[in-house]
Amino acid sequence: NRLYLVCPMNISPHVNLHKTGHEVWEEFSHCFTPAVREVVEFAKKIPGFRDLSQHDQVSLLKAGTFEVLVVRFASLFNVKDRTVTFLGGNKYSVETLKAMGSGYLLNAMFDFSEKLMNLGLSEEEMSLFTAVVLVSADRSGLENVNSVEALQETLIRALRSLITRNHPNESAIFTKLLLKLPDLRSLNNVHSEQLLAFKVH
């Protein structure tokens, strides 16, 4: 009869069975809402983002928030120790989390985080990459795809020039970064499926 909400945006994976479904969801939303707000604040600072229509800003943020959070919180996944730190500060081993029912997504998150951290990006590079991630989110429902594509192109060009300048002998880094975009989309899809399957009664 145990219930777990295995998401590091949560204080802890343990769900108090004495709480109602609404209370459980409410508590979880207190954890992730500040993180979502941070993503929005970050988006507002991306040059050109505020020039998109309000509808397209919301659409991109709805589609891309999870992907941005995966990048921003990649360091919660400690590949060396095989632990995940939850927002409450506690660390949980992979084995413990697997016993709570997490499977493919957990492995995929570790794999993604390890590869991203191995690139050793600076704060500025990571920030620009995160901006690219957001404007590369799923395009369905956008009013003006051309504007979003133009913004994406500008940001990708800026990222390439920054990476080339900072790592003149490592031309593969830029390509590796771009290849992270489809990886993030896959993680997003798996996460969405799990979210839909999660029901609090």
């Binding site: 707000r37 943020l61 709805k62 928030t65």
Partner: peptide, 27 residues
Amino acid sequence: FSDPASNLGLEDIIRKALMGNLEERQD
């Protein structure tokens, strides 16, 4: 819910944050 973003109330949070809702900020 058929949309995970709706499930999380994501659109509402995003809209309020985009508009810079004063009440939300005070929270």
